[in-house]
Amino acid sequence: MIQVQNLTRYYGRTPAIQGVSFEVEKGEILGFLGPNAAGKTTTMRILTCYLPATSGSAKVAGFDVFNQSMDVRRRIGYLPEQPPLYTDMTVKAYLHFVAKIKGVDPRERKNRVNEVMEKTDITERQDQVIRKLSKGFKQRVGLAQAMVHNPDVLVLDEPTVGLDPNQIIEVRQLIKNLAGNHTIILSTHILPEVEMTCQRAVIISRGRVVAQDTIANMTQQKRGAGRLVLQVDGPAAPVRDKLASVAGVKKVHASSDNRYEVESEAGRDVRRELAQAVVQNGWGLLELRSKDKDFTLEEVFLNLTTEEGGANA
């Protein structure tokens, strides 16, 4: 649905992005992850025909963003970092206006506007002036605006920035509900956001793509050796030796509280074997959990973005 090839953009003499390439499949939610000033907004602006690239090419739904800009614009919905709202208009009037300039058929306009208001849960606010809405509601109007012409592709630039935690959860849920019908690119500098809403991520740092893969693969690769934590009710030394003898286990550290940290070989799930070993010896298995889960993507992210930083400096 989206093909980006070797995209480069300079502002004056400083490059904002360099040689950025990635693809997005139809119906996918792609996380575009990177720290501030990495070049996320620049890339999205090129995709949405707001900015021309200095070199490289990008295609949306088979159309070139530069040479077939109007075709691309008809098929893309865009929520910029700052939602583009006419604050003196009512929600409904605003959405009607956007529907018009996006080329929605006049006979379908009303239905489309009602539908996106329904989807973003702003129907009750339709007659309010946008200026008077809370930030969360404004963001939803921004989302509704991006969807009003039922575009194939949605480009969302940091859609949860500046919202409070409840609003963030709502907006994320909303975006998840849109998957399937639309192909979505969502940029963010917040890791859990990608884990929660996207299937695949492109990590960008200082204007270059430093990693791209499914979230599962990305964390797996980096994890290399998996780490597990066990709590076993039994004598310390024999337990440790027994755990260490399980096939696939590389190292065992005993810590306080009858806890053991087990490091396994890359890509090998040894949880079943460990549990068996404990139970066969008549000890009690009080706890068995993976230590990686909560922060591996963060590790991936930090590693990639700081490694790249070091290489550049």
């Binding site: 025909c49 865009y78 910029p80 939602p83 583009p84 709202l85 996006k102 080329g103």
Partner: peptide
């Protein structure tokens, strides 16, 4: 108010 970005990315 950032609405230029809306106009400029509309057909």
């Amino acid at each position: 108010q950032g609405t230029m970005e809306l106009l400029a990315t509309s057909p």
